[in-house]
Amino acid sequence: MAKIIIPTPLRKFTNNLATIEVEAINIRESINALSSLFPDLKKQILDDAGEIRQFVRIYLGDEDIKVLNNEKTPVTHDAVISIVPAIAGGISD
C-alpha cells in the first residue's frame, strides 16, 4: 500500500495520524482514498472543482507530481506520497 505523509497542519483532520496507507494505482486514486477516509481533509487539499489547491503541492518520493504525470502519476505499493503546504511570507510593502 502507498503511504501518505500528512503535514502537521492537517493532522487535526486525520485524528492526529501522521501517515495513512491507501490502496491506489495513481495519485488521484490515492487522494480520493484519503478523502474517503477523512472527508474533512478533502477540502483542505482539493478546491470546489476537485483540483489540487494552489497552495498545496503533492510529492511522490522527492518529485513534485507536476514534473511527473500530475494526478495520473502511477504509484507503487511502496510509494511515499507527501502533501506539502506552501510556506512563504514577508514584510509589508
Binding site: P7, P85, A88, G89
Partner: peptide, 9 residues
C-alpha cells in the same frame, strides 16, 4: 521568504 517544498517535505 519562501521555503522550497522539498525542504519542507
Amino acid at each position: 521568504f519562501e521555503i522550497d517544498p522539498l525542504d519542507y517535505l
